[in-house]
Each structure stands twice: as C-alpha cells, then as structure tokens.
C-alpha cells in the first residue's frame, strides 16, 4: 500500500523534458488504404501530366516525339513502369472497393476483409505482369550485345 503514495516523495518534482516529437494516428486498414489511394492518385496524376505532354509532342514533330520515346527505352524507365502499373492497379482495385463500401451495406461491414482481397488481387496481378514486362525490358539490351 505504501507504493501508492510514493509519487508524493519523487526526488525530482520538475518533470523531465523528452525529445519525442509526435505520434502518428494509428488507424487500421481503412486509413492505410486511404493513404495508399492518395499517394497513388497523386503519383498517377503527375504521370498523366507528363504523358499528355510527351504524346502531344507528335503534333509538334514526329522526330521530337521519337527522340523522347527513345530516352524512355532504358531499364530505369522499365522499372518505373512496374511501379506505375502497380500504382494504377492498386488505385483501380481500391477505387472499386471504396464504391462498394459506400453503396453496399455488406461491404461497409466487411471493409477490412475487402482491403485484404484488394491487396491479394494487386499482388496476383503484379506477379503476372512484372516477369513478362521485365523480360521485355531487359531482353533487347541483352540481345543487342
């Protein structure tokens, strides 16, 4: 029983200052799916901006267009395409999930399960896409040498 009153006799009455800076809100699947949706959405927006511009180059001159397209044909851009397709697939699948959650009571109740179904589908689609794509990206270089 004596322990309970021990805080009265703490040696240091002035509280210590900590270097801790802040906490992140600890949301569940719903919050992280929203975060992923935002990040992929913004990323896809910037890609589309560039994509519209480089495609519009063909109206300026076909040579300029071809020159730009040639700079895209390297492994770094190939890997970038994997990321891009991943972002689009995730955004698309999660977008369908959000529509269901809004419109269908069953989905509202089982949103957590749906999140993991979305993740599974994205993983499956990417497992299908990535090897085929990377073979295309890397084979011309290997073949050329």
């Amino acid at each position: 029983m004596s322990e309970t009153s021990s805080s009265l006799t703490l040696p240091d009455p002035t509280p210590r200052k900590t270097t801790f800076s802040g906490t992140l809100y600890r949301g569940n699947e719903g919050m992280w799916s929203w975060v992923l949706h935002r990040i992929t959405g913004v990323a896809i927006y910037f890609f589309l901006l560039v994509h519209v511009l480089d495609t519009a180059l063909i109206r300026v001159s076909p040579e300029a267009y071809n020159a730009v397209m040639a700079t895209y044909k390297n492994p770094v851009m190939g890997l970038g395409e994997v990321v891009l397709v991943g972002a689009v697939v995730l955004h698309a699948m999660n977008g369908l999930r959000i529509i269901l959650v809004d419109a269908w009571p069953w989905a509202t109740k089982h949103q957590r399960l749906l999140f993991w179904i979305v993740m599974g589908l994205v993983a499956a689609l990417m497992l299908y896409f990535t090897p085929t794509h990377l073979i295309n990206v890397f084979s011309p270089i290997e073949g050329g040498h």
């Binding site: 949301g27 719903g30 919050m31 959000i98 809004d102 009571p105 509202t108 109740k109």
Partner: peptide, 18 residues
C-alpha cells in the same frame, strides 16, 4: 473517404462509417 477511423475511435461502439 471511408477510413473507418471514426468507427474505431467511437467509445460507444457506434458504427459511424456505416
């Protein structure tokens, strides 16, 4: 945006997002 943080936070167990 259906993050379901509200449903998790509710101390009364209300299905807020629903």
């Amino acid at each position: 945006r259906t993050t379901f943080n509200c449903t998790d936070a509710c101390p009364r167990g209300i299905q807020v997002t629903k």
